[in-house]
Design a binder for these strands. Structure first.
Lengths: 228, 228
DNA sequence: TCCATACATATTGTCTACACTTTTTACGTA
DNA sequence: TACGTAAAAAGTGTAGACAATATGTATGGA
């Protein structure tokens, strides 16, 4: 068994990203280098490399000679992200329909049946639907075979989506409906109908966005920003 | 006049990115840290921070304990990039049509007339059309007001596009046609017709892609990769 | 009381030195 | 000659110290 070679900077980068996504490091919080280095048991050199990467994925913002802060999530930015996802994942679905292998397609279908089973088991109040949703989208994105598209969607953008899900508790409250839409998309992909798959995926993400908007407006004033 | 505060890592990052884009640092070339540090007159600390960021924008790839190499451009990846641009810039055009201010729209129109003049002056063999094209797209992207979209398109992705343009000499050989398409897009934006603007932009980028494909196939075997 | 200035502290930016890994070179053996 | 092994060199990863900048605090004057 080969132990994957890596660096302290890599490991600490992953850990900090995780902490930011889960909210263990709060929005807008200042990142103190000596403190962070001490916490993770490394020196400031590799830590700063890690921070450079985290900055590049736009989870923190840095001001020269001042320091780094975790970004603040906002309602507006969430909508921006969904606009982009609609566009890019639509593309991914079209490409997936054209290029996914038979094996990949049948695995996708299997994934859906397991989701269906899970929803029945949990009577619809499926917490895991959230991760299942990620799974489904993740597979389609990879099925597109477009490396750069995969990097963009499965990389930085999904980290952000996960961050919002964690910190705004955005798990789906309509698992049956989402599953039905997934099923339609899967069928289109199985039939190699790229155009339809794209259209369905866009509508699916648009529905999800509208759903989120409604729920956020319901919370009279969403718990966003305003941490001075 | 305020001198923008910055760090050595930032400055050197920009310089190295530029060198990679122009080809002064060749595709696939190994980056030697002590040598690079000496060239730019800094120590390895800030240099490595710069490299972390350049890695994040996927202009170099790094292997732990081995080193960093400049990525290799490929025909396939160029097509991937154009697929993504078609999707995202289509979105940008739609948003721009909906949100650009009157001033922005008239500036966009002014830009086009100056391009038109320039093409007439240079009898169509417009070298600068290339940069003008970038300008036009750049403005629309910014007109979308979607910050993340702007970051994605005007940031890493355009660096890549510029790299291909430099190293494959991909300046447009159809400036009049491109200008006409720009004009159509501009009109749609002026009228606030987002759907049409999106459709036109997608076709425009698709045309550009087809044009590039033809020219690359013309070069019996494109001067791509194969630098061992 | 309020503001401005100067000092003290904390934090970031950078450099140098050292440890560890990989690659290259030299050598000996089949 | 070809191959494998071991030493040497080069290169990357990390730590700690120093320099430069920003922030906070205290003091003095209006």
């Amino acid at each position: 068994m080969e132990v994957e070679a890596t660096t302290l900077a890599n490991k600490v980068c992953d850990r900090i990203v995780k902490d930011i996504i889960t909210g263990d490091i709060a929005q807008g919080q200042k990142l103190n280098e000596p403190e962070l280095a001490r916490i993770h048991g490394i020196s400031r050199g590799p830590l700063r490399e890690a921070m450079s990467r985290i900055e590049a994925m736009r989870l923190i913002t840095r001001v020269p000679n001042v320091g780094a802060r975790v970004v603040k999530l906002s309602y507006g930015e969430l909508l921006e992200i969904y606009q982009i996802r609609e566009s890019l994942e639509g593309l991914a679905a079209r490409l997936a329909a054209q290029t996914m292998s038979v094996e990949e397609k049948s695995e996708l279908r299997l994934l859906l049946t397991s989701h269906h089973k899970h929803i029945l088991d949990t009577q619809g109040r499926s917490y895991f639907q959230q991760e299942g949703d990620v799974d489904f989208h993740y597979r389609i994105v990879h099925g597109s075979k477009n490396k750069r598209l995969i990097d963009m969607l499965a990389g930085d953008l999904y980290q952000l989506v996960r961050m919002y899900r964690y910190q705004f508790s955005l798990s789906s409250n309509r698992p049956e409906q989402a599953l039905k839409e997934h099923d339609q998309i899967c069928s289109a992909i199985e039939e190699g109908d790229g155009e339809l798959a794209e259209w369905l995926m866009k509508r699916h993400i648009n529905n999800a966005r509208n759903n989120i908007m409604l729920r956020m407006q319901a919370q009279s004033d969403p718990q966003i920003g305003e941490t001075p």
